[in-house]
């Protein structure tokens, strides 16, 4: 058998799509085409705003270091019902606390 003809036949044979790929791709295409462009952009923008909001929220709940003269203390509300070992900034792991300067 001529090798070149066989290679040609091999390359011409191609692949068969599986699992109703043709129907699935067409359905997805039509769904996307029918979704208004504005809605698509709205979803993207909403996602970005959500990420920014989460990032700001996280930053605001972090303990901030305000310099060597700042003294971190706990309010009486925080102390009520809590069981603390040592006092000081370490106790703020579960309570952000209040800050006052000496």
């Amino acid at each position: 058998m001529n090798n070149k003809n066989t290679v040609s036949a091999l390359l011409s044979s191609g692949f068969e799509p599986k699992n109703n790929a043709k129907m699935r791709i067409k359905t997805a295409l039509l769904q996307k085409a029918n979704t208004p462009v504005r809605l698509q952009w709205a979803l993207v923008l909403g996602g970005i705003l959500l990420l920014i909001g989460l990032s700001v929220y996280k930053k605001n709940t972090e303990i901030r270091y305000l310099g060597p003269n700042a003294v971190y203390s706990l309010s009486s509300d925080d102390l009520a019902g809590q069981n603390f070992g040592e006092s000081g900034p370490r106790g703020l792991e579960s309570n952000p606390g209040y800050i006052h300067f000496q």
């Binding site: 692949f15 799509p17 599986k18 790929a21 699935r24 791709i25 997805a28 295409l29």
Partner: peptide
């Protein structure tokens, strides 16, 4: 196939 379907789409 999965990648081919994504590209086809």
């Amino acid at each position: 196939e999965q990648e081919a379907e994504d590209l086809t789409s």
